[in-house]
Amino acid sequence: MTEDEVLAEFRASRALLEGHFKLSSGLHTAHYLQCARVLMDAERASRLAMSLVQQIPRDVRNAIDKVISPAMGGIIIGHEMGRALGKEAMFVERPTGTFELRRGFTVTPGEKILLVEDVITTGLSSREAIKAIEAEGGKVIAVASLVDRSGGEVQFDVPFFPLVALNFPTFAEDAIPAELAAKPVEKPGSRKN
């Protein structure tokens, strides 16, 4: 899928929102991608996952043992990536503020994991999820996401494969433009701190 085709999917599902949003990263923006809306249609979610799988080189795809996503945002696309790759998909969650595997999910030491996110801005949640997976003995070999909104800034110790890179401006708490600051703040992400 091209960037325009991916954005068309977001627009068709009314998942591209405008206003004043505080992201899970703590940054502020005038644009928010509500991936849960774009993924609520199973056929659309499947198309996006298949397109994302095609961004991952064949040798990396063939090495993947399992797909793991951070809850909440990554669960649906992670599941669809598992289906597209023919691999088990599970998720890490934060019942006490730190990511962990629960619900009987396990990794065998040395298993090669693809970490899948919906949107990556700073990579903080992804790095926290990688740390939790590695603490269980898994080896994250790549990160994939529907959207990279880091402006090309996010770096991992493994290859990163986004479906599309979008560069909506983000602002630190102390650098919010007056026009944006005048709008009420919404916190649509899964992390409320």
Rank of each mutant, 00 (worst) to 15 (best):
F21L: 08
S24P: 04
S24L: 03
S25T: 11
G26N: 00
G26D: 01
L27Q: 11
L27H: 08
L27P: 11
L27C: 10
T29S: 11
A30N: 06
A30R: 05
H31C: 12
Y32T: 13
Y32P: 05
L33V: 09
L33I: 10
L33C: 13
Q34G: 07
A36F: 03
R37P: 00
R37Y: 07
V38S: 13
M40P: 01
M40Q: 07
M40L: 08
D41K: 06
R44W: 00
A45I: 03
S46N: 13
S46D: 08
S46I: 00
L48C: 15
L48T: 08
A49C: 06
M50G: 14
M50H: 12
S51I: 03
V53Q: 10
V53A: 15
V53P: 05
Q54M: 13
Q54K: 14
Q54G: 10
Q54W: 02
Q55D: 04
Q55R: 15
I56R: 05
I56N: 09
P57G: 12
R58G: 09
D59C: 01
V60W: 07
R61E: 02
N62M: 10
N62G: 06
N62V: 04
A63N: 13
I64W: 04
I64C: 07
I64K: 08
I64V: 14
I64L: 11
D65G: 12
K66V: 15
V67K: 03
I68Q: 08
I68H: 09
S69H: 01
S69D: 00
P70W: 02
P70M: 08
P70A: 14
A71Q: 07
A71W: 03
A71M: 08
M72Q: 11
M72R: 15
M72I: 14
G73N: 05
G74D: 03
I77Y: 02
I77F: 00
G78F: 11
G78P: 06
H79V: 15
H79F: 09
H79L: 14
E80L: 05
G82C: 13
R83F: 00
R83Q: 07
L85R: 13
G86R: 13
K87W: 00
E88M: 04
A89H: 03
M90K: 07
M90G: 14
M90F: 01
V92F: 02
E93N: 05
E93M: 08
E93I: 05
E93G: 04
E93R: 05
R94W: 01
R94G: 01
P95L: 07
P95A: 11
T96D: 15
T96W: 10
G97K: 07
T98N: 09
R102F: 06
R103A: 12
R103G: 13
R103D: 11
G104W: 01
G104F: 01
G104R: 06
G104D: 06
G104K: 05
T106P: 00
V107C: 02
V107W: 03
V107N: 10
T108K: 02
